[in-house]
Design a protein around this nucleic acid. Structure first.
Length: 422
RNA sequence: GUGAGUAUAGCUCAGUUGGUCAGAGCACCAGGUUGUGGCCCUGGGGGUCGUGGGUUCAAGUCCCACUACUCACCCCA
């Protein structure tokens, strides 16, 4: 048997409602903030991600689905969306058409990691990017949108963590301080962290190993070494968040693993989804557009993991979706009336009703069971004496009441069905 | 890449120290007076117990290998 690729999941018909619900919530919130959707290809030239995300990052160095196509071009399935959005922004000169570009996306992403709860190899993210303004107002807006989406889904067990990484020169100064602090203690770090010491010293803060955490507890904090501008912007972000009643914690050890972040970074964590608790993360990236060959353009954005959010919704039991139903199930009393049934179904469907009927030549009883299972509001009987008198029988399944309707008065039937429950 | 755990019907799982152990519930199908559902009752289909070896008179039940899946590390959404 051929099975789905390791780390990929089918979204089956009875699960799709959850996805529609999530997607609709996402689109609604983004629309209210006037973000428009952008769709970029699922694959890009490998160089885009290598330059955008950073060669040394885990994503680029060991998690990308990279292959050569028949023209020997190195292609990569997108592991995140920001690089592609920025590429499109530059390629289509969006910055020339309007000073500020606000976009959102909903898309599958691909990373070859070991799957576990809340982590797949093909997974889905929604997110937003705002390009063209350095204003910390937009940083706060990103957090607000993400929080608003999660909140309107009904999630409660959330915590917002924010930090500032500062501008690169300030960060370099800080890294030197950190190197000084760690130089004498290097030997007691884990092997992993020794490598980080060389490659990306900030990431040592991410380590969950106790011995590392013990050492890092007293390490100098980036937030104390920020440049004045970053410090000021960070204060503005906090002021706005407070004003918006969004609870947050400053987490000085929050380090984003992508190279492009500057200044504000943030993360929203759920206490209900297992080890992969980060539902969304993002931050400012004022140097990325230039890095990818565009004009100097500040940007800020975030991405959220949809599987994780749905997991959180299930574990918090907040997804109270209405039962699916159909309007009418056509029950055929005599099998030779199939042609008439299909004609009626077609007519009713054209009148915007959800209609189904039996395709398996089953008994009336079986057809009724099927109607009940599909949560049909009405059943329409076709056949018998009534049909000989040009009538069909409409039955309201919740009350059990039936009424005969003339075949030339179908409008009456349609309005009856459409006014169900009113 | 590292570690741990699991693997019995479509799904969730029982199967005691190896000897009627191939089961239950749900789901599915058919019937319960010949044209009408939800509840209930009766019956039915469906599994070489992940795969391959081994131990034994006898193996879902013990041992080994392989494969798949799950969780965690790592990393991130």
């Amino acid at each position: 048997m051929i099975k789905a690729i390791y780390g990929t999941k089918d979204i089956l018909p009875f699960d799709i409602r959850k996805w529609y619900h999530l997607e609709n919530t996402v689109k609604k919130v983004f629309r209210n903030f006037n973000y428009n959707e952008i769709r970029t290809p699922v694959f890009e030239e490998t160089a885009l991600f290598a330059r955008g995300i950073g060669e040394e990052t885990d994503i680029v160095s060991k998690e990308m689905y990279t292959f050569r196509d028949r023209s020997d071009t190195s292609i990569t399935l997108k592991p995140e969306m920001t690089a592609g959005v920025v590429r499109a922004y530059i390629e289509h000169s969006l910055g020339e058409k309007q000073p500020l570009t606000k976009v959102f996306y909903i898309s599958p992403m691909f990373r070859q990691e070991r799957p576990q709860a809340g982590r797949l190899r093909q997974f889905h993210q929604f997110g937003a990017e705002a390009l063209g303004s350095p204003s910390p107002l937009l940083d706060a807006e990103m957090i607000e949108m993400a929080f608003e989406i999660l909140r309107s889904l009904g999630l409660k067990d959330l915590s917002v963590k924010i930090n500032s990484l500062g501008i690169p020169s300030a960060r370099e100064n800080y890294k030197n301080e950190l190197r000084k602090y760690l130089s004498g203690k290097k030997d007691i770090l884990t092997e992993e962290s020794k490598i980080r010491f060389e490659k990306n010293i900030l990431r040592i803060f991410d380590s969950k190993a106790e011995q590392d955490q013990e050492i890092m507890k007293n390490a100098p904090l980036l937030i104390d070494y920020l440049d004045d501008e970053s410090k000021n912007d960070f204060e503005v972000v906090k002021t706005y968040l407070k004003n918006l009643n969004i609870p947050f914690e400053v987490e000085p050890k929050l380090v984003r693993g992508l190279d492009y972040y500057t200044k504000t970074t943030f993360e929203i964590i759920s206490g209900k989804v297992g080890a992969q608790s980060s539902l969304c993360g993002g931050g400012r990236y004022d140097l990325l557009v230039e890095e990818l060959g565009g004009k100097q353009t500040p940007g800020v954005g975030f991405a959220a993991g949809m599987e994780r959010i749905l997991l959180a919704c299930e574990n918090e039991n907040v997804l109270n979706l209405p039962e699916p139903f159909i309007d009418i199930y056509l029950v055929r009393i005599e099998n030779q009336l199939l042609l008439k049934v299909s004609e009626l179904a077609s007519y009713l469907r054209k009148n915007d009703l959800m209609v189904d009927y039996d395709y398996l030549n089953r008994s009336v009883k079986a057809q009724m069971r099927e109607a009940n299972k599909m949560n049909a509001r009405f059943v329409l009987f076709i056949g018998g004496d009534e049909f000989k008198n040009d009538e069909i029988v409409l039955k309201d399944l919740s009350s059990g009441q039936q009424e005969n309707i003339k075949l030339n008065e179908l409008n009456k039937l349609i309005s009856r069905v459409k006014n169900y429950g009113t």
